[in-house]
Amino acid sequence: MLSVHDVEKSFGGIKAVDGCSLKIKKSAIVGVIGPNGAGKTTLFRIISGFEKPDNGTIVFNGEDIEGVTSFAIARKGLIRTFQISKALTKLTVEENMLLAPQFQHGERIWNVWLRPKDVKRQEEENIEKAHALLEFLGLLRLKDEYAGALSGGQKKLLEIARALMADPKMLLLDEPFAGVNPTLAMKILERIKELRDNNGITVLVIEHDMPKIMQLSDHIYVLNKGKVIASGAPEEVRANEQVVEAYLGGVWGELR
């Protein structure tokens, strides 16, 4: 589904990503872990087109996408969320959701003026879909609130719901559980697995919450200083000496 090969990116002489390669199969849930500054978010920015790589190739669904602009990548079905949640605080929860569907009739000026019926019909379909998703995540009663009034965890949820509204083939989730209460986090986790099982969606997720990512992922990549230092099934990574050595103490200490 997604193959990243030897991607490099440096900022002012510092290599943020230094020859990263990942291979992600269709319908897999893959985790990316590593200490702060390992280059995880930069890698995400490169894959999603928000940053151009200095070197390397990225193939998504059979197409080269390195250097393609962000919106064009999103249109191919690769949808990302942001580490620091980017719920649009000045729009309502519902408007946030309705922004996401792609190729809406009403996104063209002429259609708005000349085909108002089609626009309206599609809008109603989208509202229905949005309400179902919001209901599932327990946000429905907040649909008319400005997203700015939501708690940090709720914003995170909204962002994931919004990404799902876009019918992605693949999701890039940047720390989806940060600040979300454990019950809800479990719910999201189940939902992601469900989407994979039923819709064949592929997921690449950055996460600091070790137990969750071990539970969620089929496969894990460990990044350090812009390089992949280990990869494999969660148990393998947990047992990998190099990883443990690099991260003695902290969360990794707890893991053992």
Partner: peptide, 22 residues
């Protein structure tokens, strides 16, 4: 309309509409 919604999203943070294919 959805068109206006995209404009408002650009006004607040253009990374979001870009990440959603606009």
């Amino acid at each position: 309309s959805p068109w206006g919604r995209v404009l408002k999203s650009i006004r607040e943070d253009e990374d979001v509409p870009a990440s959603l294919g606009k």
